[in-house]
Simulated assay, not measured.
Amino acid sequence: MNYFIIIAVLVTVDQVFKYLAQTFLKPVGTLPIVKNVFHLTYGQNTGAAFSILQGKQAFLIIITSIVTIALVVYLIKNYKTQNHLLLISLTLFISGALGNLTDRVRLNYVVDFLDFTLVNYPIFNTADIFVVSGSIFLAYFVLFAKSVNSRKDI
């Protein structure tokens, strides 16, 4: 399986959804899908998760670039590993990071559009879903998969 093709596809999917949000959602602001539960709401985030580091675009671009390059190098070096969970987590994380990095460089903000109004959660986007999913898989790998693999060697 070519993880770099998956990265390209996921970044493209993210950018298409953000384009659609800018084109069709920005003029209306919000569109209830399930009233008072889930809305599509256009937002521009000049910060990181939960709007921390608001307005620090140069810093966020530099940090995201460094982390993404490091993860891509790690993915290339470990491409032939048998641990697909690790590779999938890196693929998802890299995809999300590149999706939001593309916005930061191109627009100087990140387009957000997914809004769970029921729990008053911050508006987010598909790239955020990729980063969070990749992080969860990576945490699982670090906490549990290594110990399972080490028991197989015994």
Rank of each mutant, 00 (worst) to 15 (best):
V11F: 07
L86F: 09
F17E: 09
L25G: 00
L86Y: 04
A48Q: 07
N108W: 06
T12H: 14
T117M: 13
A21N: 00
D103G: 03
G96F: 09
L60H: 08
D103R: 02
T30A: 12
T102Y: 10
F124D: 08
K152A: 06
V72N: 03
A145C: 15
H84W: 09
L20C: 14
L20T: 10
F124P: 07
L92M: 02
I33E: 02
A21V: 01
A8H: 11
V11P: 07
Y42D: 06
K56F: 12
V28W: 01
L90T: 10
R151C: 04
L118S: 08
I66P: 05
V72T: 13
F137H: 12
N149A: 13
R104H: 08
V16N: 10
L101F: 06
T23I: 11
G55M: 01
K80C: 08
S65L: 04
D112K: 10
L107G: 07
N83V: 11
I76S: 09
V34C: 11
S135R: 05
I129K: 09
R104V: 01
T41H: 03
V11S: 14
T68N: 04
G47P: 14
H84K: 05
I6R: 05
L53S: 13
P122I: 04
I129G: 13
Y79G: 11
Y19A: 12
T41I: 02
S150G: 07
Y19M: 09
I129P: 04
Y140E: 03
T46F: 02
I88S: 06
L138T: 06
T91I: 09
N149Y: 08
L118Q: 13
K18P: 08
L53G: 03
Q22N: 12
I136E: 00
D112E: 09
L138K: 04
G96Y: 02
L118I: 11
F17C: 05
T30D: 10
A70H: 05
F17W: 08
F144N: 10
R104Q: 11
I154K: 13
I136W: 01
V11R: 14
Y74T: 08
A58Q: 15
I52Y: 12
T46K: 10
K35W: 00
A48G: 08
V13F: 14
N78A: 13
I33D: 02
V9E: 15
I33S: 03
L60Y: 14
S95T: 01
L114N: 00
N108Q: 07
H84P: 10
T12D: 15
D14H: 05
L25S: 00
S135A: 12
Y121M: 06
A127H: 01
Y42P: 06
G96D: 04
F116H: 01
V37Q: 07
L114Q: 04
H84L: 07
T41Y: 03
I5V: 10
S133K: 00
L40D: 01
A145P: 07
G43Y: 05
K35V: 00
Q22M: 09
G96R: 07
F17D: 07
I88N: 14
I61M: 04
Q82M: 15
Y42F: 13
V132T: 08
V34S: 05
I154P: 05
L85M: 13
I136M: 02
F141P: 00
T91R: 05
F59P: 10
I154G: 15
F124R: 07
Y3Q: 02
A48P: 02
A8W: 11
Y3T: 02
L71E: 00
N149Q: 15
I61A: 00
